[in-house]
Each structure stands twice: as C-alpha cells, then as structure tokens.
C-alpha cells in the first residue's frame, strides 16, 4: 500500500489520540478492578443465575475472574474461576 506523507501524518495523529483514549479508559477499568479486590461481588449470569463471591483477580484480557467463597445454589465453593463470557454484569459497594 502506498500512502502520501500527509495521510500518514494524520493517521499517526489519529492513532496517538486513540491510544491516549485507550490508556485513559483502561486505567479507569483497572482502578475499578483494584477497588473490587477482597470485596463481596454479586454476579448476574445467564439463565437468571445470581451468585455472590469475594473477588480476587482478573486476567489481563478479562476472560476469567478468580474468586473465593463462591455461593452457588448447590453450596459454597472455596476457590473458583468464573468465565467472563457467562457473566452479564456484576456489582459491588464502594
């Protein structure tokens, strides 16, 4: 692909703006995860399942949450991983 220098300049400016926005947003999200550590979190999942657990950590690409004391309908699971794909939303108090 051939691009004029003017085009590539405005492209890189656009890219820089986008990267800045990305970093601001990611920082906000990471602060949210940080403030959630060791707190009781209510997860709303598919099939109308609601569970509560103590939040531990998330992997960087937000695919799994590590939680403790997961209260499920069939008992309490001491340690668990929750697949983020199964989660609709979650809430906690700050």
């Amino acid at each position: 692909s051939i691009s004029s220098s003017a085009a590539s300049e405005s492209d890189s400016e656009q890219l820089q703006k986008e990267q800045h926005a990305r970093s601001v947003l990611r920082e906000g999200f990471l602060r949210c995860l940080l403030s959630m550590t060791n707190k009781k979190v209510q997860f709303q999942m598919y099939e109308n399942v609601k569970v509560e657990a103590t939040f531990g950590a998330s992997d960087i690409d937000v695919l799994n949450f590590q939680v403790s004391d997961l209260h499920t309908p069939i008992g309490v699971q001491k340690e668990a991983l929750i697949r983020c794909q199964d989660v609709i939303s979650f809430t906690f108090d700050i």
Partner: peptide, 12 residues
C-alpha cells in the same frame, strides 16, 4: 459511566 475497558468493552 466511569470508564469502558478497551479490551472487553465492559462499561463501569
């Protein structure tokens, strides 16, 4: 809306 995770698009 506090933030949107640019990786998972999750809204805070």
């Amino acid at each position: 809306l506090l933030s949107v995770d640019p990786v998972s698009a999750s809204a805070v």
